[in-house]
Each structure stands twice: as C-alpha cells, then as structure tokens.
Computed example of a mutant assay.
Amino acid sequence: MADHGPPNGEAWRLVTERAVGGESLRVLERPAVSPGAPALVLVHGFEESPDTWLPLARRLPGQLHLYALRLPWCSGSPHRWADEGGSALWLERALGLLPSPPDAIVAHSFGATTLLNLLARRTADAQPPAVLVAPVYRPHDRPLDPEFYAEAVRRFRGVLGEGLRTRLGRRAATVPADILQAMSGKVRERVEPHGFLQFYATLARAAELPPYRITSPVRLVSGHHDPSAPPEAVRELLRRIPGAEARQDPSFGHFCQVQAPDAVAAHIVEFLSRLGLYEPDTEAVSA
C-alpha cells in the first residue's frame, strides 16, 4: 500500500476532548484529501493509544477520513475508569463526540471486544460495519474456573509484554533481557491492580454477549498463533455473528496493525471496497 502520511507531518489533529469522571476522552483525526470522504474510526486496545494506529493510518488511502479515539484504557492510565461505567459505555460516549456517525469502525484487541459488546446491544440501523483486529474473546464452552483465571492472567501479561516490545520497536532487540523484564514489571505494577480486573471481567462476560444480533458486515483479522485471540475463539465468533468473515495470516501477531501494517491495511481496504465505501481505482496504489 502507498504511504499516506498525516498532513504536514503531524501525527493526529485534535478534534475535541471531554472529561468524564476524571477521565479524558479525545477524538483525533487525519482529514481526507477531499471533502465528503467516508469516515473510518479507529479504536485502540488495552494500554495502547491513538499513536498505535499510526503505522496503519499511513498506509490507508488518503480518501478516507480517519478518526482515532483516545479511550480511558489507554497507556499510562491507572485504570479506575470502570467507576464511571463499563468499556462499552465509554466507547459509546467517545463515538458520540464525532461530528457524525462513522461509516465503519476498526478496533483492536480489548477495543474489538468492547466494540462487539456495543454493536450487539445496538439496534440494526445503528450498527456500522466493523473490522475486528485480534479480538479478545472467550468461547462459551470455557468455564470460569481457576484454570481459566490463570489463563486470563497469562493472556493479560502476554498482551502487556508484547505491547511493550511493540512500542520499543527495533530497540527491543538491543535492550538486555533483565532490563526488558524490569520495564515489564513496572508496567504490571501500575496496570494490574485495577486494569486486570477490567480485562478479566470483559473476557469473562464475552461468551454471554449476543453477537447474533449484529447484522452489519464484520471482518475478523487475526493470526493463527495469537494466544490472546486464539483460532477457536475466532471460529466461534464466525459462527455466532451472521455477517462475519475472517482473514487470518499465520505471520500475524497480536499487534499485527503495527507489525504488518501493509497487510492489515490491504484487508481493511478490500473490506471497505466491497461495501462501496472506497473505490480503489480512484487512487494510485503501490505494491
């Protein structure tokens, strides 16, 4: 895909910000090259930020108006946001700050699970098409027992660790293992006391969601060996969401939107093209 970097070299441009119960919600944008463009909203995962989307945003066509939400489960948060409502309510609040309803939404990991929750509870006419990247989900046949709790801890810590290495980028290969472990420990000290409770609650309730109520087109994008979005969970979502389809790549990790942005962008563009939201012939695309 061609690199469609943000205008004037800026990362994102702030559209609006609102404080709710001590938490800050922000809507940022990358305007399209022409007016009237389809609006695509990006929803980050746990301990991420709008900047997590930059590698992908730079590869999405300039004829899409991109909005990135900064949600209270962002990196650096003390994760006390649940005092003011669950993650789906927070996402609903953030979407309400947009100038108009989005044409489609792309969400990652915990953000994807949150979007599933929100879409399943909305009426059909209020469900925009969605791309769920590495959704965190619990199949209904997994009981809430000590084994699952221990697995949830491993998945949570795995996401935090991989997220740290992803943020470090190429520097991660040069950081000594003991230093990397200490850095990961510091993140866990801040996040786990409250953050894990929200992650576990969302994961535990995921199987109770009514995804069969989602009638809008949904595409799942994930890898084959992502322990945080295991293939069996993806298969169940495919069965339970009427309009769902999957694009899986064995090379994709949990943060594939950062690690393989060209491939993920191609899946998103193809999905939007099939829906008539983007016409590939109107923009030059390089290999």
Rank of each mutant, 00 (worst) to 15 (best):
A233I: 02
S222A: 09
A204S: 11
R239E: 05
F199Q: 04
F196L: 05
R239F: 08
G243Y: 11
E192V: 12
S228L: 03
A246Y: 04
V187K: 11
A244V: 10
T215M: 04
L237H: 15
S216N: 08
P211G: 05
R188M: 01
F196W: 07
P193G: 06
A207Q: 13
L238R: 05
P231S: 15
L209F: 15
H224M: 08
V187Y: 14
A201W: 14
A246D: 09
S228N: 03
V218R: 12
I214M: 11
V234M: 10
P210I: 03
R247C: 08
E192L: 08
T215E: 05
A233G: 13
P193A: 03
K186W: 10
E236P: 15
V221E: 01
G223M: 01
T215W: 08
A233Q: 03
P231I: 11
E232C: 06
T202P: 01
K186G: 12
R240L: 09
G195K: 09
D226Y: 15
I241P: 01
P210W: 04
L238M: 00
P193K: 09
S228G: 03
F196K: 10
L238N: 00
S216W: 01
E189Y: 13
H194C: 06
P211A: 01
A206D: 06
R188N: 00
P230K: 02
R190C: 00
V187A: 03
E236I: 09
E208N: 10
L220R: 13
G185A: 14
E236N: 13
A244T: 11
G195I: 03
L209C: 15
S228F: 01
P242K: 13
P227K: 01
V191I: 13
S228R: 13
L237D: 09
